[in-house]
Design a protein around this nucleic acid. Structure first.
Length: 424
RNA sequence: GGAGAGGUGGGUGAGUGGCUGAAACCAACAGUUUGCUAAACUGUCGUACGGGUUAAACUGUACCGGGGGUUCGAAUCCCCCCCUCUCCGCCA
């Protein structure tokens, strides 16, 4: 959620920025927010004045009662009744205005960073870096959904039986590979200075609002109505919410956390021909890195996070490209996002395996995540996160790219974790 | 699931109707002093939204788990809800 003050003071900048997203209602919503904010302040000013008068009179009554001047006290009581009535009217109005303002702000996405290009969608993303040669596979190379059957390492039918589509069952070396990747990712991140966190994988409503899944992406999360809890779609939600309603000190920064969790996504309406196999799942494993930074260093942090993720992909020997997302493809909360995509040789497609974003103050404003600096000033912080990494598509690419006639070769960096070098 | 206790500022914890936005202590921060460390002393020390200011100073209102009520006046009294803890039961 954007700060009203920012919208008020930087109206043009906000509208132009939102324009890069192709966000058509930008001017309308921004002006609505500005006028609601103005209204809100006017009402509050009036109401505060009346409440102040009531407080003064109440004190006077107290004094009169004590000194036994009951009659005078009674006459003042009459005055307060009237004031109370107008105050309660104003309070109701104030509450309504605040709600309307909040609801308006909820509809306005984050303003993209200056360097984010305008664009309508995925086609306008800019590839800023590519690494590694694309694999040269024989014509009869199998896509991963065939490979997993051939070697019996992941079973969709079994998952279908006990849960439903999109809930795969990993078996034998398939299961071991999952565990190996999780351990590999966690240990790398820890070595990089991230604190390992093992958070709950269900969260309450407040946490959903904190990171912005609610109210706009309600349908994306599994909701347990009986307890009003949500299955997390990413570790970002619980880990970032650790800092909800928190005021940090300088010495607490930078916050660098890493966590592995299963992730649950309903993916309502997003199933199609190209989401076969591991390409899109309802449940998948992901290691997520989260940072909380001072405002002036968040973009440096974003670069560091990208470099870190790119390092992982290199170690896994996967050809990848780094995309700077254009305005139109940018997530609602994000000011700037880089996607990392690996090439899956048999599908001959780029698969997104990581999305690394700087939310600037957009999440922190909802979370009320702030810092008290040395001067005692309180300021919002910047939050960032990125996948490091999401497993299924990494697995898909490893399986496809490394297939040979004798089996699938495991990248050397994983051998210590898997305990085997080949799936055959 | 059954029974009980409790939710006050960063922490402990006082506070049963006005002088309490909240004692005291601890922590934290700033300063003074002793050669350093430690200690002592002095001061500062909640948040939000307004007004005000170049910025401060200053100032108004609200907030003692959340919501509602009683009252001229509520942390304090009443009602509802939420949460936490303890014991028992069940159980990984």
């Amino acid at each position: 959620m954007l700060q009203v003050n920012f919208i008020r003071e930087e109206r043009e900048k906000v509208i132009v920025g939102l324009g890069k997203r192709g966000f058509k209602e930008a001017a309308v919503l921004v002006d609505k927010a500005i006028s609601l904010d103005k209204e809100r302040r006017e009402i509050q000013q009036k109401n505060d004045e009346i409440l102040g008068e009531i407080n003064r009179l109440s004190k006077e009554i107290g004094g009169l009662m004590k000194s036994g001047k009951k009659d005078e006290a009674e006459s003042i009581k009459g005055k307060t009744a009237e004031l109370k009535k107008s105050s309660s009217e104003l309070s109701t109005k104030l509450e309504q205005t605040e709600l309307a303002l909040r609801d308006t702000l909820y509809l306005i996405p984050n303003v993209p960073h200056e360097s984010v290009p305008a664009g309508a969608g995925a086609d306008d993303n800019i590839s800023v870096h590519e690494h590694g040669a694309l694999p040269k596979l024989p014509e009869d190379a199998l896509p991963h959904w065939e490979l997993i059957k051939k070697y019996d390492i992941i079973d969709f039918d079994l998952g279908n039986k006990i849960s439903g589509a999109g809930f795969p069952v990993y078996k034998g070396k398939g299961a071991r590979l999952q565990r190996a990747l999780i351990n590999f990712f966690l240990e790398k991140a820890t070595a990089e200075g991230y604190l390992e966190i093992q958070p709950p994988i269900v969260v309450n409503e407040a946490s959903g609002y904190g990171t912005g899944q609610l109210p706009d992406k309600e349908g994306q999360m599994y909701h347990m109505q009986l307890d009003n809890l949500y299955m997390i779609p990413t570790a970002e939600v619980p880990i970032t919410n650790l800092y909800r309603d928190v005021i940090l000190g300088e010495s607490d920064l930078p916050v660098k956390n890493v966590g592995y969790t299963p992730c649950f996504r309903r993916e309502a309406g997003s199933w199609g021909a190209h989401v076969r196999g591991l390409n899109r799942l309802h449940q998948f494993d992901k290691v997520e890195i989260v940072q909380v930074r001072n405002q002036d260093e968040s973009y440096q942090a974003l670069d560091e996070m990208c470099a870190y993720v790119q390092g992982l992909l290199k170690l896994l020997e996967l050809p990848y490209r780094k995309l700077l997302l254009c305005g139109g493809d940018l997530g609602f909360n994000s000011a700037m996002t880089y996607d990392m995509e690996v090439f899956a040789g048999a599908q001959k497609r780029w698969l997104e395996v990581s999305s690394i974003s700087n939310f600037e103050t957009f999440q922190a404003n909802r979370l009320k995540l702030r810092i008290k600096n040395k001067e005692g000033k309180i300021q919002l912080l910047h939050t960032l996160n990125g996948s490091a990494l999401a497993l299924p598509r990494i697995v898909a690419a490893i399986l496809e790219n490394n297939q040979t006639s004798e089996g699938i070769h495991i990248p050397e960096v994983l051998w210590d974790y898997t305990g085997f070098k080949i799936i055959n």
